[in-house]
Amino acid sequence: MKNQILKLVLFIFVATSVISCQDDPLEGVVSNDRQFLSFKIDGQVGPAIIKPEGEGSGTIELFAFGEDIDLSSITPKFEVSEKATVSPQKGEAVNFDNGGSHTFQIVSETGKIREWTVKISIYEPILDGEWKIRSFLYDWHIGLNNDWGWGVFGAYDVATSSYDPANYVPEVLAKDFPDAAFEEDNTIEFKTVLINEKGNPEGTFSYEAGDDNSFSSFVLNPDHQGNARDYSHRFRKMPKGNGVWEFNELGNVITLWEGNKNGPSVKGNVTVDAQGNISIAFDIWENSFTWDHWDAESHIQNAYTIYYNFELDNI
């Protein structure tokens, strides 16, 4: 037993000696790196866009939100390449009052220099304002990705495993849900309040009924069995009344909470057209179709997305 312990101790000693005698492959190597690894300021929206350009320059673009932003005294938080030095230094207040720009200089361990132009632009929220519904649409397809299917996506091309976009035209929801028309005069107001620690805008919203003082009903009456069937759990995505939201601009995803963040929530995809109109699309697919009914109910049960398309309410 003692011999085994002695052999183990000798083995560890020899192995340690061999490792310690090996040359360090990084010894004597110096770095040319002169990069910004990260860059952030208070009130920043989303991540900074960091672009090295050639051997000696680079740009950083970012957006900041807030009416009281003082561009003459910004203290950025950043990380640079190991063993590189930067000017202005970390923790130093910087004057961006010259058109929102300032030039930083990073010097590598070897003495190479890269000039970085940092540009801060004031963020203009794309959601803020009072909006009215321009259209309330949905799409559906029976037998999606099968050549026997039909719906607003058009015919499925087996050869290309796709649909011709020219054949895709979402339908007015009131065609199959008559009382969905109550939604078509509703309004919503978005207001950005802050930028959170993730760099996402957050704010409040108020979704109100229009002149008819009514919201859509998603009850199909009668259904194929002659009964009233309520599909609100699928189609009532937009919360009524007041709530809060968070918008991930990088992914174009908005999360809406009814009341506050302790309330029910729903996610939608936001798009903006060339005129500045916004659209919020909600996924409503459920695999619940049965073959004992047709027409409106088959469309409803095979629905994939509803679209709230808004334009600014200038009245």
Rank of each mutant, 00 (worst) to 15 (best):
V152P: 02
V152F: 06
F177G: 01
W148C: 04
D164Q: 09
V193M: 12
N167G: 09
P165Q: 01
D128W: 00
F153N: 04
Y156A: 00
V152E: 08
T187I: 10
E130C: 04
D139Q: 04
E184L: 09
F177H: 04
E183G: 09
V169M: 13
A180Q: 09
A180K: 08
I142Q: 12
L144T: 03
N146T: 15
E189P: 02
W140T: 10
Y156I: 03
G151E: 07
A181M: 10
D147T: 13
P165W: 07
N186P: 02
V152H: 07
K132C: 03
A180M: 11
F182H: 14
P170C: 07
D128G: 06
V193H: 03
S135V: 05
V152A: 08
L173R: 07
I133S: 07
H141P: 08
F190H: 01
D147H: 02
P170Y: 08
Y163T: 01
V169E: 15
G151M: 10
P165R: 11
Y168D: 08
T192F: 03
E183V: 04
F153T: 02
I188C: 11
Y163Q: 09
I188K: 05
Y168P: 06
T187Q: 11
I142G: 02
Y156F: 15
D185H: 08
N186D: 15
G149I: 00
K191C: 02
L173M: 15
W150N: 08
S161N: 10
K175I: 07
D176V: 15
D147C: 04
D179M: 14
V152I: 05
W131C: 08
P170W: 12
I133P: 02
N186W: 05
Y168G: 03
S135T: 12
L137T: 14
N186A: 14
N186G: 12
V158R: 13
E171W: 10
T160R: 11
P165F: 04
D176C: 04
S162K: 10
W148E: 06
W148M: 04
V158S: 13
L144Y: 11
Y163W: 02
V193P: 01
T192W: 01
E183N: 13
G129I: 00
D139I: 07
R134N: 14
A155N: 13
K191N: 08
D157W: 06
K132T: 14
D139N: 15
V158M: 14
L127V: 06
K132D: 06
N167F: 09
V158K: 14
I142H: 10
Y138M: 12
